[in-house]
Structure formats: C-alpha cells, structure tokens
C-alpha cells in the first residue's frame, strides 16, 4: 500500500552548508560584467573551487561563459565552457566546478535551466548572484543551492534555497584595501611607508584606549566590563621582563641589526669600488 502511493517530497541536496567567496572571484565577475557584450543584460559563468569535508564551499576561481538569452530559452556556449575548464584544470587540477554565477538581483526564470545544466556537470551546484545594478541600494551577493520537489520519481520543480555566504576577504587584507577600494592608486606603498601608516594606526588605537580609560576614571563614560577585560588581557599579554633583561635583549637585537646593515653597506661599497676598478683595469 505504502509503496504504491506516490509521495510529494523535497529532496534536500544540502551537503553544502555555507560558501566562501574569494575576492578574486568577485573582481572577475565585476570585470566581466563591465566587459559584457552590448546587448547582454547579464553575464553568467562557471565557479571553480573545492568543498571541504565540513560542508563549506570555497569558491576560488571563476570564468565567464558566453550565452544568449531570449524570453524563454537560454543558450549556453557549452564548448567554450568545456575548453575553459580543461585549460583551468591544467593549471590547477585541484579546482573543480562547484557551480555557476550570474549577475543581477536574485534568481530569475532562466536560472533553473542553467542550473539544470550545471547539475549535470557536478552534483549540487551552487548558484551565486551578484547584484551589479545595486537594485536595493546595496551590494547584495547571494548563494543558493537547489532543492528539487518531486512527486514519486517525477521531478516537478526546483527550489532555490539561500545558503549563508562568507565574504571575509583574507587575501585582500594582505594587499590592503586602500589599493582595491579606490579607483586609482598612483603608487604602491613601499616598506617604510607601510610601516609608518601601521604605526600611526597603532598610535591612534592606543590613544583611543587612553581616552576611554581616562573617561572611565573621571566618570564621564559609563564603564563597560567587556572592554575593561579586553584592555586588561591586552596589557597582560605583554611578557614581564625585568628592565635589565629587557635592555640586554633590546641592545642585542639592535646590535644584530646594526651588524647586518654594516655588512650590507660594506658589500655595496665593495661592489661599486670593484666596478670602478674592473673598468679601469681593462685599459692595459
């Protein structure tokens, strides 16, 4: 009895619980959107990356796939997709297809068709949408997985279910946001300039802490235990060294560095002398 009845049910395909997007993917999508063909409204493409055992998806790379979209049909350049994928495989075999992206807000009608195509390429593809039009007045980037609704063995529909998306940009932090945020940077910061700005920021932070502590002591600011604990922890993290030991450590380090600077300057001088002598020595 039970076996003959047909059951209406969702097949959650959720092995992927959350996704992380690397900034380079976002940059690539934006760049390809800017370079899209005249009549195209959106760009779509393939996402590459890997799935970690705990279900987090790491989207590490992407490429655009040309497509044609009319009212009710979508034509994807499948050859292009395969060519590009095999090219990417040659460079980094660890990055496999994990899904696809599209610009625009949310999921649109044609998306189900494209999603079906990617379902054949990989199990449980992820659909990433990037709203390049800023339709809500904010940058909405969303990731979806599909859940299929079936009646018995028959597929009825697919539902897109949003999954949490991690947009922390660890890589970008190393490069510096100043470089990636503005439209034009004239000069890359060199070592010492970077150091200077870091120190200035540290100084400003210490200053803030001072102000806060003074404010609390004088009763102007209501004390917050959490902040107090943070400050105490920070102060405690400084190792206790007796002044004499610290001085010795400090002087040793300074001397090491001085020796290195001396050595490198010596070599540089040597090089320039050698060059002068070498060119002179040839006039025999």
């Amino acid at each position: 009895m039970a076996s003959s009845s047909t059951v209406l049910q969702f097949h959650p395909s959720a092995t992927i619980v959350s996704a992380r997007v690397q900034p380079v993917v976002l940059f690539n999508i934006c760049d390809s959107y800017v370079r899209r063909p005249d009549q195209a409204e959106r760009v779509i493409g393939t996402l590459l990356g890997s799935v970690s055992p705990d279900g987090t998806l790491d989207i590490r790379n992407s490429y655009v796939v040309p497509h044609n979209e009319s009212a009710d049909q979508v034509a994807l350049d499948i050859d292009y997709h395969h060519n590009m994928f095999s090219s990417h495989q040659k460079v980094n075999p660890k990055e496999v297809i994990v899904g696809w992206f599209s610009t625009g807000f949310g999921v649109s009608g044609g998306s189900a068709l494209i999603h079906e195509f990617y379902s054949r390429e990989v199990q449980n593809p992820v659909h990433l949408t990037v709203d390049t039009g800023f339709r809500n007045g904010e940058a909405s980037i969303k990731a979806y997985v599909s859940v299929s609704l079936s009646l018995g063995d028959k597929q009825l529909a697919a539902q897109f279910q949003e999954i949490p998306l991690d947009l922390r940009m660890i890589e970008a932090e190393r490069v510096g946001f100043d470089l990636l945020k503005t439209t034009n940077v004239d000069k890359l910061p060199n070592d010492l300039e970077g150091m200077e700005s870091s120190m200035e920021r540290l100084y400003a932070l210490i200053d803030d802490v001072y102000k806060y502590v003074d404010g609390v002591v004088e009763g102007r600011i209501t004390p917050d235990n959490n902040i107090g604990r943070f400050i105490a922890d920070t102060l405690a993290s400084m190792p206790r060294i007796s002044p004499a030991a610290f001085d010795k450590l400090f002087n040793d380090k300074i001397q090491d560095n001085l020796a290195l600077v001396y050595l490198s300057s010596l070599i540089r001088t040597q090089l320039s002398i050698a060059e002068k002598l070498n060119t002179a020595a040839q006039i025999l």
Binding site: L26, T132, F134, I141, E173, L180, V185
Partner: peptide, 29 residues
C-alpha cells in the same frame, strides 16, 4: 599604478567596512 573600475570600488566599499586594524598591520608589526 593600480586602478579599479567604479563597480569594483563600490562593491569593496560596501562589503568591507572601514576597520581600524588589518592583517597587514599585524604582519608589519
């Protein structure tokens, strides 16, 4: 020189709130 399209610049500003400390600063210090 580094340049970015206005679109990317908008995205980055939107997604990355101005934080007082970055990884970069830790590394440098």
């Amino acid at each position: 020189k580094v340049s970015n399209s206005a679109l990317i610049s908008a995205f980055m500003t939107e997604l990355e709130p101005e934080s007082p400390v970055s990884q970069c600063d830790y590394d440098r210090l």
